[in-house]
Design a protein around this nucleic acid. Structure first.
Lengths: 208, 208
DNA sequence: ACCTGAACACCGTTCAAGT
DNA sequence: ACCTGAACACCGTTCAAGT
């Protein structure tokens, strides 16, 4: 079946199938993807630039889907909304997370999200020299908790006795509920920490 | 060369070579590892339980090397020391980080570190029900910044103009220095956030 | 007990050949 | 322009055969 009159593939078709494959839980790969599409792996290379480019395509789509409009508000609102949106995205597509770690971000839509964040922090009064670091902190935070969603049920499996850890694991929730609670605690810690830092760098308005 | 009088391999020999392979920057795999050891990949399976078990072996060794004695002190000191030790370990062996994400921790030495942390937080006055979440927050934090070390020089590559992000990237440091700065900011935010949380859950001593 | 070599079911990518 | 099939250099794991 060489060269049908109407092309079988396109970047969109490939991205859709890639997302379905990732969400199915089966390991992602160009061969597995081609199989799903009823096509040879080499065919994909006529439309996209290989494995990593497909992942970046999927990331871009998801970010656009999960952030319909650019957030407005105070830096606190924007930080919280950004982190919660990322959380929702990773929760909806946990198997994507291990695939995107350590890949350079080039997608315009994703860059724009980080730009909004950076702008909000500068306008919020954080020292310019710190803002990129703070964006990285927020990013690390979101990614770390995204990986938590992609992790096995039990992160720790103590075989011997422990002083505290074993009992805490036995007493508390597991799986998604454990992860959600940790996320909420983490988000509160993050926002509190940022507020303290802002207060320390820009002393409160002398009028008060 | 079947069955030499003195065994060529052992878990220790394999772990040493695995660490050298990982630190060399070449992609890790059982085949590549066997090649380095001048041995067949199948030989490894007489001593260790495959790819993931080798990674867990390396993790255990490194944790033991980087934490010679169990930390003592206030919860703040223990949290800070734990995070800094993990940071040092990941900085020394960045290529290990992507290999350990999402793998269940079974190594006794590693479990013990988390147990010390959990115990310190309980004794420090954090609500028992929150402690496991807080340990997960600290873990996500350390892992997120570890991944930052394993990431390419440029995390963001904006192609179009941006309002703020592009200028911040151009003005600030890159590579290791950027990562280190972000880590320091993140650690300060983490500790501040934890202090606020503790103060909110356990109101200050009425004597003061 | 320990190592090999062959086998199996995979990877990601390139490229000449076909229409 | 678009798809195929073969090729290349890899993966991780199993297992019978050899000493």
């Amino acid at each position: 079946m060489p060269r049908p009159r109407q092309a079988l593939l396109s970047p969109d078709v490939i991205a859709d199938a890639a997302m379905a494959l990732i969400d199915s839980g089966s390991p992602f790969g160009v061969n597995a993807l081609a199989r799903r599409l009823g096509v040879t792996a080499s065919s994909l290379y006529h439309h996209v630039d290989g494995h990593d480019a497909i992942i970046e395509l999927v990331r871009g789509r998801l970010v656009r889907r999960y952030t319909p409009d650019l957030p407005r508000g105070t830096w606190e609102e924007i930080v919280e909304r950004t982190v919660r949106l990322q959380r929702a995205m990773y929760a909806g597509h946990p198997a994507l997370v291990p695939l995107i770690v350590g890949k350079t971000i080039t997608d315009e839509g994703v860059i724009e999200q980080y730009d909004v964040l950076a702008t909000a922090l500068v306008e919020g009064g954080f020292p310019r020299a710190d803002v990129l670091s703070i964006v990285a902190v927020i990013d690390s935070f979101a990614l770390g908790f995204g990986l938590d969603l992609a992790s096995p049920e039990n992160i720790w499996e103590p075989e011997n006795d422990t002083r505290t850890l074993g009992a805490l694991i036995a007493d508390g929730p597991s799986g998604r509920e454990r992860s959600d609670r940790a996320f909420e605690v983490g988000l509160a810690v993050l926002l509190d920490g940022l507020r303290s830092r802002l207060a320390a760098s820009a002393p409160p308005d002398p009028e008060h």
